[in-house]
């Protein structure tokens, strides 16, 4: 089919489309080959170790049906905890990110100083150490649960990265836009809300999506303070059953499910913003 379309009497536009299609097919084919090879390697490796696959035992850790009632298994419960932690931390990290970005851009010397110190400390110390500090020091002082210690720690950590992205988006809005808004008598709050942010948000969305995906992945670290998230549940099950391959692969699959869904959501948002801008 492609051979025909590429013949000399095809229009340039058709040609281009066929070439693009062919490139995509090659892409997909190489991806399938890559995944197959990886799967084969894992299987061979497991065989070599004399690994005893027991996939049939996995579903019960997701759900069981007893007397016609669905009972959620530990992996599903862990997944829900991970979702909860991630969702709350996401909202908080965006709030922190916006606040810190505005502080960094503010004329106040003190505001800029605080923002700078926060950013440098958070970005230049290991997340694991921060989790331990949050749990053993800050949570004890504030008297909050390990769940909230985990949530706050993640929000504060990812907030630092969100802040830089948000700041980048804001400063990318042309100076003339600020000046026109000010010259029209808009108050600083209105300048941001009505003029700057609507132009900055579409620029920030792709990199912010990356931060949110990272947040979901990094949420696994709360397992070190014994929050019963997906990773903690996985670890407990592996300790009980020794089904390391099956459980960890399932856990990875569940994380992938969250992050891919998230990416799709952000893609949808980008489309919507993109359309309204140039409608």
């Amino acid at each position: 089919m492609t051979g025909q379309a590429l013949s000399s009497n095809a229009s340039p536009r058709q040609r281009r489309r066929t070439l693009a299609l062919r490139a995509r097919l090659i892409d997909i084919a190489s991806f399938v080959v890559f995944v197959a090879a990886l799967g084969w390697l894992v299987l061979r490796g497991a065989q070599g170790m004399g690994y005893n696959w027991q996939w049939f035992r996995v579903p019960r850790y997701l759900w069981r049906v007893i007397d016609g009632q669905v009972i959620w298994g530990p992996l599903t419960k862990g997944l829900l905890v991970t979702l909860q932690i991630s969702a709350i931390a996401m909202v908080l990290s965006l709030v922190i990110g916006l606040t810190v970005a505005l502080l960094r851009l503010s004329p106040s010397f003190v505001g800029r100083g605080i923002a700078r110190v926060y950013l440098e400390v958070i970005r230049n110390t290991p997340l694991l150490v921060q989790v331990l500090i949050f749990y053993f020091i800050i949570a004890q002082i504030l008297g909050i649960s390990r769940f909230w210690a985990g949530v706050l720690c993640l929000a504060v950590y990812e907030g630092a990265f969100a802040a830089e992205i948000i700041r980048g988006g804001i400063v990318a809005v042309r100076r003339g836009q600020w000046e026109a808004a000010r010259a029209l008598g808009l108050r600083p709050f209105d300048v941001y809300r009505d003029v700057v942010l609507p132009q900055a948000v579409p620029l920030m969305l792709p990199p912010l999506a990356g931060v949110l995906v990272n947040l979901v992945k990094h949420s696994a670290i709360v397992s070190v303070i014994a929050v019963f998230d997906l990773t903690t549940e996985g670890r407990t099950i592996v300790a009980d059953t020794f089904m390391a391959f099956e459980i960890w692969l399932t856990v990875a699959g569940l994380y992938l499910l969250i992050t891919l869904t998230l990416s799709l959501l952000v893609l949808g948002l980008e489309r919507r913003f993109g359309r309204s801008r140039h409608a």
Partner: peptide, 19 residues
């Protein structure tokens, strides 16, 4: 703010709000 209410400005680059 009071002065900006009395004074309008037109720029070389128009600076309309694109969104």
């Amino acid at each position: 703010a009071a002065i900006r209410r009395e004074v309008g400005m037109v720029f070389q680059q128009f600076n309309l709000f694109p969104h």
